[in-house]
Design a protein around this nucleic acid. Sequence first.
DNA 1: TTGAATTTTCAGGAAACTATGAAATAAAAA
DNA 2: TTTTTATTTCATAGTTTCCTGAAAATTCAA
Lengths: 167, 167
Amino acid sequence: MEFQQAKEKFIQTWGTLGSNWGINKTMAQIHALLLISPKPLSTEEVMEDLMISRGNANMNIRALIDWGIVFKEFIPGERKEYFTAEKDIWELSKHIIEQRKKRELDPMMRSLSQIGKLEGGKPDEVQEFEKIMSELNVFSTKAESMLNKIISANKNWFFNFLLKLFK
Amino acid sequence: MEFQQAKEKFIQTWGTLGSNWGINKTMAQIHALLLISPKPLSTEEVMEDLMISRGNANMNIRALIDWGIVFKEFIPGERKEYFTAEKDIWELSKHIIEQRKKRELDPMMRSLSQIGKLEGGKPDEVQEFEKIMSELNVFSTKAESMLNKIISANKNWFFNFLLKLFK
DNA sequence: TTGAATTTTCAGGAAACTATGAAATAAAAA
DNA sequence: TTTTTATTTCATAGTTTCCTGAAAATTCAA
């Protein structure tokens, strides 16, 4: 397969994956582009390669930096800013899990935990509601503990994960 | 807190969670409604409770059934169809992981695996590309095996998971 | 300072996604 | 059958999300 063709396919695929999981397509594509680039790229280069506007490129690069998976790189003698992606896939997945948990799961759990003792409502409805809420609580506690173990580890997370389980 | 208020909050929250993760809001809300309902609900009841149209309710209930997390229920003497949600949170998460993997991750991996030996392109670019692709491959293989172990288990998945690891 | 290069912002337009409701179809009862 | 009730479909409308491009702000060197 032609290199250029493979590159486009990868960027395209990564973009689709992202948008299926609530991450905007362009953001995922920029990330893919930086991921496979052996050298840092400037905003200009990203714009040109993906054929997107300056505003779009800038906003999404910024968002990727906020997520902690893309970094600014200063090139001596150059005035422009250059960007690289986190290349270590394990670090990458760790950051993504961490961020999504912090931004979405945690606020949701906090919001749900505000629901206290219920007043009114038909007895069977209240009972069912309380049962489901309590199950969700158990579930999320276990899932969270597992996620925390995974993300607090590094490349060898799998071993560390097991280690931590038994200590 | 008032029951009705808590119920609305839960449905609202579940909907937001869904849309953050690429699942349409109404679909998630219908699911939430069925989840906390002690008895099966008809399309009419869903429409009324969430204030949505017949078409919308029908399409999304159908989608939930396709996902395997909502079931038709026949009530003797009733002509209408009634629906219940999978109430076991562990089963639920298993189904969701399974389906998303099948529908999105698997096709993506299949698509990427079509990329074979590369022709053309600058040497350093080709090298970087191949390095990242190979890392992604290792990652996805490990992640997949873990997911498979989790979803093939049941309520006691955590225990089974460990068991399977060591045999 | 001044001014050129670069980055950021954001109003308005475009695109993608979702919902509506009425008509068509199907299924059960009369 | 025919009638009644329930379900599905789908063109259109509505909503949300995203992108553009130009103007404003910032940065840095002269």
